[in-house]
C-alpha cells in the first residue's frame, strides 16, 4: 500500500500500459469474434469445430502460448496482445452466438415484414436486444485480458505485472508484490463494475 502511495507516477504509468494492452486486445478481439460468430450462426455445422478449436487454444497455459508467439511477434507487447486476443475469442464468440440466438426469429421476421432493411434490422432490433449478453461477454473477456496482461511484463510488455516480477526478482520486495497485486485486483474490479453497469443499463432498455 505504502509503495502505491509513494510511487503514484510509476503505478499510474504501468496502469496505463496495462489498460492500453487490454483495450487493444478487446478492440481486435471484437472485430475478429463478430464475423466469426455471425458465420457459425448462419452455418450451424461450423459451430462445433470452431468452438472446439477455440476451446483447445484456451487450455494452453498463457506463459507457453506467449513463448510460442515470440518468434513471430517479437519479445514485446505485440506477442502478449496476440495471445490475449486468442484467449478472449472463445469467450467472445460464444457470447456473441448466444446473443444472436437470444433474439426470437419471430421478432426479426416482424421487423422484416414491417419493411426494415438488413441494416435497420441489425442496428434497431438485433443489436439492442443482444447487447446485454454481448456486454457480459466483453466483461469476462476484459477480466481474462487484465489477468493475462500481468504475465506480459515477463516479455517486456510493461504493465502492472512489472511490479510483481520485480518484487519476485529482488527477493523480499513484498511491498512491490503487494502493490502490483492490489493494483491489478483493483483494476479488474473497476473495469468489471464499469462494464456491469453498462450491461444493466442495456438490460433496462
Amino acid at each position: 500500500m505504502s509503495y502505491l502511495l509513494s510511487h503514484p507516477g510509476l503505478v499510474w504509468q504501468l496502469t496505463q500500459e496495462h489498460l492500453a494492452m487490454v483495450g487493444m486486445t478487446l478492440g481486435i478481439a471484437v472485430v475478429l469474434a463478430l464475423p466469426l460468430a455471425l458465420l457459425i450462426h448462419q452455418v450451424r455445422w461450423l459451430a462445433l469445430p470452431v468452438m472446439g478449436i477455440l476451446s483447445i487454444l484456451y487450455t494452453v497455459p498463457s506463459l507457453a502460448l506467449i513463448i510460442l508467439l515470440v518468434p513471430w511477434f517479437g519479445l514485446n507487447a505485440r506477442s502478449v496482445v496476440v495471445a490475449m486476443v486468442i484467449y478472449t475469442q472463445v469467450i467472445l464468440v460464444r457470447h456473441f452466438c448466444v446473443g444472436l440466438r437470444s433474439v426470437e426469429p419471430a421478432i426479426l421476421e416482424a421487423a422484416k415484414g414491417m419493411g426494415m432493411n438488413l441494416w435497420q434490422r441489425w442496428w434497431q432490433v438485433q443489436v439492442p436486444l443482444m447487447l446485454p449478453i454481448v456486454l457480459a461477454g466483453l466483461r469476462l473477456a476484459a477480466i481474462v485480458a487484465i489477468a493475462i496482461a500481468t504475465v506480459g511484463a515477463k516479455f517486456g510488455a510493461g504493465g502492472l505485472g512489472t511490479l510483481l516480477f520485480d518484487g519476485i526478482a529482488q527477493a523480499g520486495r513484498y511491498d512491490k508484490i503487494w502493490a502490483g497485486s492490489l493494483a491489478v485486483g483493483s483494476l479488474a474490479l473497476l473495469v468489471n463494475t464499469a462494464l456491469l453497469s453498462l450491461e444493466w443499463a442495456a438490460r433496462r432498455g
Binding site: A106, I107, E109, A110, A111, K112, G113, M114, G115, M116, N117, V125, P128, L129, G205
Partner: peptide, 28 residues
C-alpha cells in the same frame, strides 16, 4: 421494403420489439 411498409403485418403474440416502448413500437 416499400411494399412491406405499405402492408400492415400482425403476427401471433404480437412480435412487439421488447426493447422499445409502446410508442416506439407503433412509430416504427
Amino acid at each position: 421494403t416499400a411494399l412491406r411498409q405499405r402492408i400492415g403485418y400482425v403476427i401471433q403474440q404480437s412480435g412487439l420489439f421488447p426493447h422499445m416502448t409502446v410508442a416506439q413500437n407503433v412509430a416504427v
